[in-house]
């Protein structure tokens, strides 16, 4: 289609998105307005990534795109084209929980669990950059993630425990 035809057409053409999520390649034709979180949850059925606020505040939808933490409710699926994505489902390896998942479970780092996938993904990104963070650095690192029920102290304890485990 020529540019003027595109402009004139009321019909929005679909776009092709190719992503690798947790090591598996996916290809979908999607509407341009489809958000990354909707691609992950609704098109691909990976419902571990949650939607809380839907307006970039709570961080429940956090996933890693090419290693960087992003709020997937505020990124178009098409913007992730050709990217490597890691979601909470990709943390477990060979039926072994990730050290952060273990630490959250052992240190009461979650209660209802709604914020947990996002907390875990932000913590994965934090520890990749800073393997031995101070409690203050952990607070900063997860400051884009809100938890409404556990309270942050046990979450910080969990991240510290995981950091220690991963260093040993």
């Amino acid at each position: 289609m020529s540019m003027s035809e595109v402009i004139a057409s009321k019909e929005i053409s679909g776009v092709s998105v190719q992503v690798t999520i947790n090591g598996q390649a996916y290809q979908r034709e999607v509407e341009p307005r489809l958000l990354l979180v909707q691609l992950i949850r609704e098109e691909l059925g990976l419902t571990g990534t949650h939607i809380g606020c839907d307006v970039t505040y709570c961080g429940a939808c956090t996933v890693l795109v090419d290693g960087n933490p992003v709020k997937s409710c505020t990124m178009l699926a098409i913007q992730a084209d050709q990217c490597e994505i890691l979601t909470v489902e990709g943390l477990e390896q060979d039926s072994e929980l990730h050290p952060l998942q273990k630490a959250f479970s052992e240190n009461h780092g979650l209660q209802c669990g709604f914020c947990t996938p996002g907390m875990l993904m932000s913590s994965v990104a934090l520890l990749a950059e800073n393997p031995d963070p101070s409690p203050d650095e952990i607070r900063k690192g997860i400051s884009g993630n809100l938890c409404r029920c556990t309270g942050y102290n046990n979450i910080i304890k969990s991240v510290q425990a995981a950091a220690k485990e991963m260093a040993d």
Binding site: T56, N68, P69, K71, L126, G144
Partner: peptide, 9 residues
């Protein structure tokens, strides 16, 4: 600026 996620994008 904002948080780690917003700073990534």
């Amino acid at each position: 600026i904002a948080d780690a996620q917003v700073r990534s994008r």
